[in-house]
Design a protein around this nucleic acid. Sequence first.
DNA 1: CTGTTAGCGCGTTCAA
DNA 2: TTGAACGCGCTAACAG
Lengths: 344, 344
Amino acid sequence: MAKLKDIAQKTGFSITTVSRALAGYDDVNPDTRRQIEAVAMGLGYQPNGVARQLRSQKTDTLGIVIPSDDTRFSDDFFSELLMGVGYATAHMGYDLLVSAQTSDDEMSAYRRIVGGNRVDGVIIARTRRHDPRIAYLQECGHAFVVAGRSAPDEPSNFPYVDVDSQDGIGQVTNHLIGLGHRHIGIILPPSEIAYTGYRLAGYQQALIHAHLPYQPHYVVHGDLRREGGRDATYNLLTHHPQLTAIVACNDAMALGAMNTIQAMGLRVGADVAVTGFDNIALAEHAHPPLTTVRQPFVEIGQHLVELLIRLIQQKPLGESQILLSPMLIIRQSCGADLPRTESP
Amino acid sequence: MAKLKDIAQKTGFSITTVSRALAGYDDVNPDTRRQIEAVAMGLGYQPNGVARQLRSQKTDTLGIVIPSDDTRFSDDFFSELLMGVGYATAHMGYDLLVSAQTSDDEMSAYRRIVGGNRVDGVIIARTRRHDPRIAYLQECGHAFVVAGRSAPDEPSNFPYVDVDSQDGIGQVTNHLIGLGHRHIGIILPPSEIAYTGYRLAGYQQALIHAHLPYQPHYVVHGDLRREGGRDATYNLLTHHPQLTAIVACNDAMALGAMNTIQAMGLRVGADVAVTGFDNIALAEHAHPPLTTVRQPFVEIGQHLVELLIRLIQQKPLGESQILLSPMLIIRQSCGADLPRTESP
DNA sequence: CTGTTAGCGCGTTCAA
DNA sequence: TTGAACGCGCTAACAG
């Protein structure tokens, strides 16, 4: 690869002059510039990004770490978010450094990327309770934004973008209640995930609002994957056959729920209604189509990236904690055609 | 962030010694090393990755560019590939620099990443005819691997991983023929995509093998997205109502085909059978479930990354052109329940 | 308008 | 066993 030095030698000017000519400084003789530009073009000169980064102490690169070995949580969510973030990043003229964590030590990826000055800012996704990543980034003062607030009982003293999932789960639960369901189970995410509390709260609130009793044993946890939905549904339905509806806290688990229901010889949407949450594109094509809450990943990614870049560039932040309103998408998996009767 | 210099000052040793102590050289006094390590730990020292890269002239980073503005091609394929590649990359101890191209000039992203020495190697996906990216990388001698061979009539003189889609489309077409279908349409990708030729060949070959005539007007092109499948199907069915089956060359277009069929008042799988290709997870949940050919993206990503890293590290390559066998996945969307009669 | 000097943080000579 | 000097490629401050 051609370097400034090569162009300097070939034109007879100094490295500095070449640098300034190509950088568009106006204290360069137009003629000199033309010569230099011609030679640069001829050599196919491309500035060395790494050297620039070292010199300027910035990378114009954002970082994101996706879980890898911890197979429990590696689902479609990250691939959707990744695309959203990727496009937004490019649109803002930044690059994206993706580091899948590989070892058992989650933080090492962050230390390498952040402490190693590889990126100007980091996006954290799927917040957990007492999230060590947030603690680390706050401590070392590095720029970061988060997809998802802290749990309800923890402070969220950082910039984030989140969907109001309490409202979302409230909406689906209400929807089920409105259809006549009285015994509604819910499959929550693992309790260490920060948003779990919001989803439980949405469920509870809807019940209270409808003067229905809250039954703690109608609440189970799944691992966010299809398998988790299957197991959880099996547990729910064997112990509580009176359930006529199940709220799954993401679409992958909703699909798992459907599998189990069918495997148990029941009819989805007739014997047991199922709803999801997430906008994993699958929901639209599920059979029967899945009533769900839409998470606009592209929009989330865009907000995250814009927020982060504003942070990096020290521009005024405006709103730095963004809560998007979820949208209930009603499809035919709720058993709307089957009015329920009260059971004791 | 703490630097070598800081540790040097605090311990009283020189930067050089600190560097060597932390790098694990054996010409360091054990006692000195302990001191230095202690201080490094205390300061939370993290080596500056950028400086290292500049010094060592390598980045331990792989690059991939995903199309962005050219909305025609930005479908689920890249998000699936990205996850596969991301995990494999991490597993090999590398990072992944994702650059979504933003401007109209596709090559600028490659020049920045590759010419700018930001990555040790690049993964190219979705090969096109006369692909300028491949020409560029060959010319500048940078390490790269490709997901997908060149078109049948062009040389593939580079390392690649591909699925034998000729065989795959042959399998689905055979499957349809075996079910009694005699008038089978096909929705191909745009002709500038390299694998289009293989898929057409697979279709033709299956027809020939069954002594069925090849009708050029049964062949149309779609843009790889749902909309493309819709339009193409509409054209096929309005001009050739005798068609009883449609082979879509990816699952997104297959879903679009289903939409159109239903919108025209026909029944998917009964009046018109549909098959796909790709392993976009959607196929499994389509209604009715879609017979399709599975592309193992995770495996592809793994092969690509391993190949590329071996290339970078100048290790023996072994097989550098890998052709994976596709697997036909039969689900119920082929109208298996409806035996056909010959039509003139 | 142009060139010299200096340094970003690190690793690798070579000499002590 | 340790340290001083050098350079990776680039840009910024200062002289001339």
